[in-house]
Every structure is written in structure tokens, then in C-alpha cells.
Design a protein around this nucleic acid. Structure first.
Lengths: 217, 217
DNA sequence: GTGAAAATGAACTGAGGAGTTCAATTGCCT
DNA sequence: AGGCAATTGAACTCCTCAGTTCATTTTCAC
């Protein structure tokens, strides 16, 4: 019966909206109960859609999962790469600049969808090893390279003392994220944002103690 | 559902060799295919045991999984704690001492069973959140405390400049493990031990650049 | 309006697996 | 050798769930 469609935003409503609703609902359900425990009836109910519609759009449970993962990961990775746009390029304001970047990275990392995808990828790494590789290649690997480039520029200008930029990039990430995964039980537990901020600042501090060229401050 | 367990679950019931065979086989099967995909028929076959024997010993699939996880985790955690026994206590030989510890920690981390347990815990964190907490509390959390204590002693003797030993301990771990999880696709891929060793040495180097009190080297 | 494409719901199939039962057998202890 | 507990295998119950079918209804484009 007449759905009282509150939103008929654009032209192509029927099919595309259903598809988006399905994908979004699927992410929520997968994140909540895991791949194996998620039934298509659950997802259909959560999306407000009939089960055959899911098959019309996405073919199979496995394919739906792949779509959800790659799509969400791509969005999350995009946001992470954007963080580098505010990466400091001069010695002036280096520390606050790095702290800013670190804080934003932590925010990206602790983003709900981002954590959900990561957790699901780890969880299903046995079942979908190719998915894991694909997402990592298009995300973290590229990010590390980009970050290494920024660090190398700073080192080149004499603002940091770094021999191996890729390694330094990895260590920057490691220090900034530090124990976030354990703190949040891999995303299955909320994380206090003040704690996260402290970890990020402390990570930057240690990074600068190790790699800073001037006094450090 | 099942029974009032008088909870002599661990021993007493049935033959010991059978029980051990079951638990060992279960770990292998769970690690290979994951919890949901592991059927008790598979495990029974792998253990060379009849299916009812599993129920005789361990009651249910869920209980079997819990036993396997806690038991294996306890063994792995024990080995990790042992590493601290060789932790350096003097400035003399500090760097090689730390490199030795770091190398041993990486070895513990990359141990096959240890990785399997970690992967399974992450994978099933949604289904068994309490298991995750339990294992972490009896393992990593205690280890961090112990490591912080050792670092604090070194700092107190003036061999390191550390304000917050717990944070320094977390950062030590973060630097030493660095990107091991991603390198090995969370344990689902073999890891070159020379790479791992390099990561550990580089981690110690950065740690000492940040926290060392003398020249460092 | 009208018709085609899409969505719906409900019922159905088939596979796979947890957990149980039981009569027959094996292993162990004395 | 006798006896008891543990083990075995096979068949069986029950349930969940992916994926399908189809007749009916909704949606949208023209």
C-alpha cells in the first residue's frame, strides 16, 4: 500500500534506491552478526526489501558481500587519502601539523564503517583471501606510499632525519594507531575519542623524538 | 539446553589421549576453515575419533571452541612472558638486548598456533566477545604491564628517558610488530623471517632514538 | 492511461550440519 | 577371564538457510 514515499529525490528512483538500501543494510547486518550468521532474510528485512530483489540486484550472498566490502572500503580509503592533503610541508608548525594529521587518521581508523569493514575482512580472510588482498592493495598500501612521499619531502628539506621513508611511514602509523585495535576489541566496542586523541599525540611525540631534526618542539 | 554440568569437563571424562587428539585436531580445522565452516564430522575425522566421542568429552561445538582457544592462548601467552626473562637490566648491551627481546617477541607473534588463535579470536569476536576479553586480559594486558615494569626499571637507572612506561611499552610493541599483521595477511600467509627480523631491529632503533639516554648506539 | 520492468511475498527445494540414540565393540584394570 | 567404562559407526531428527519459482502488485516512463 502506498508507501508514503517521503523521499523521491531524483529521477531514477525505483531500482537504484533499492540497490543502495540493500547494500547499506547488508553492511549493517554483516557488521552486527558476521558473514556466516547473516541470512538474506535478515538483510532483506533490514533493507525493507523482498528477498528476490536482492538476487535481482546482486546475484548471490557471496557477491553481495564482495560488493559491500569493496564499496565501503573504497569510500573509507578515499577519506584516509584526503587526510594527507593537510600534511605539513614546512618546519613551521610541524608538530601541530603532524598531530592534526594523526588525529584525523585516528578518526578515519575509528570510523564505524571503516572498523566494520576491517573486522569483516579479518574475520573472513580465510573464506575470501582475494578480497583481503584487493582491498589492501587499493587502500593501505597506497596510503603508506603516499605518506612515505610526504615524509621524504620533509626529510629532504632537512626538517626530519629519516633514512628509510617507507619504514618511517609504517612506524608513524604504528605509533599513532598504537593499541587502538586492542582498546576497541577490534571495533566491537566503542572507543573514547579523548583516549584515542591522547594516543595519537603521544605517537607523534615519540615519532618526533626519534626523527625530529631540531629541538623537537 | 544441555545438562547441568557438574563441570568436571576438563579431566575425568573419557580417555586423555582421545581428548588431546580432539583438541589438537580442532585447532587445526578451525584455523584452516574457520569456526562456522568447521563441522564436527571434519574434526572427528581429523582427530581419528568418532563424533559422539567429541560430545562425550567436550559437550558442544561452542564449548570445544572455547576450550581450544583458551588452552592454546594460555600456552602462547606463557611463551611470550618467558621472553621477558632475558630482558636487559643494564645499559651495557642494551641495544642488542632489546633487539634480542624484539626478535623473540616477533617469533612468538608469528608462531603458527599463536597466529591461528589470534585470527580466530578476531574472526569470532562478534560471536564470542567474552572469549576475546578473557584471553586478552590473561595475555596481552599482563604482558604490557610486565614490559612496562622492565622499562621503568631501565628508566629509573637512567638508561632510558621514559615518562610513561605503559605508553612506552605499548609503543615498543607497536614499533616491533609494526606491519607484521598486514605483511602476513593476518596469519593466512607465510611470513619471511628475515623481513620480520629487519622490522624488529628497525623498531628497536627507532625506540632507542626516541627513548635512549646515551648516544643510543 | 497503459504497458513493461521491477518488486513483492509466500511457498518450496535441497543441502548441510548440530546434536542424539543405540547396539555392538574395544580397551583397560584387577 | 570378567567387567565396566569409553568408543565406535551408522542412522536419524531437527533446523537453518541459500537460492528459486511464480502469481500478483507496484512503479515509472511515455
Amino acid at each position: 500500500m502506498s508507501v508514503g514515499d517521503t523521499e523521491k529525490s531524483t529521477s531514477d528512483r525505483g531500482r537504484l534506491d533499492k540497490r543502495r538500501a540493500i547494500v547499506e543494510a547488508a553492511l549493517r547486518v554483516f557488521a552486527r552478526v558476521g558473514y556466516a550468521q547473516a541470512s538474506l532474510d535478515m538483510i532483506a528485512a533490514e533493507a525493507g526489501v523482498a528477498k528476490p530483489t536482492i538476487y535481482n540486484h546482486l546475484g548471490s550472498k557471496e557477491n553481495l558481500f564482495r560488493h559491500v566490502m569493496t564499496e565501503t572500503a573504497a569510500r573509507a580509503n578515499g577519506k584516509t587519502m584526503e587526510v594527507l592533503e593537510s600534511f605539513p610541508v614546512e618546519a613551521d608548525g610541524l608538530r601541530p601539523g603532524l598531530e592534526d594529521v594523526a588525529g584525523k587518521l585516528v578518526a578515519c581508523y575509528t570510523d564505524e564503517q571503516s572498523q566494520a569493514v576491517r573486522r569483516l575482512l579479518y574475520a573472513e580472510a580465510v573464506r575470501f583471501p582475494d578480497l583481503f588482498d584487493q582491498v589492501r592493495a587499493s587502500g593501505p598500501d597506497q596510503f603508506i606510499e603516499a605518506l612515505a612521499g610526504r615524509l621524504a619531502r620533509l626529510a629532504n628539506a632537512g626538517h626530519l632525519r629519516i633514512e628509510d621513508p617507507v619504514r618511517a611511514a609504517n612506524q608513524f602509523i604504528a605509533l599513532v594507531y598504537e593499541e587502538l585495535p586492542t582498546l576497541s576489541t577490534f571495533g566491537s566496542r566503542p572507543l573514547d575519542s579523548r583516549d584515542a586523541e591522547k594516543v595519537a599525540v603521544a605517537g607523534v611525540d615519540t615519532f618526533l623524538r626519534a626523527f625530529g631534526s631540531s629541538g623537537g618542539s
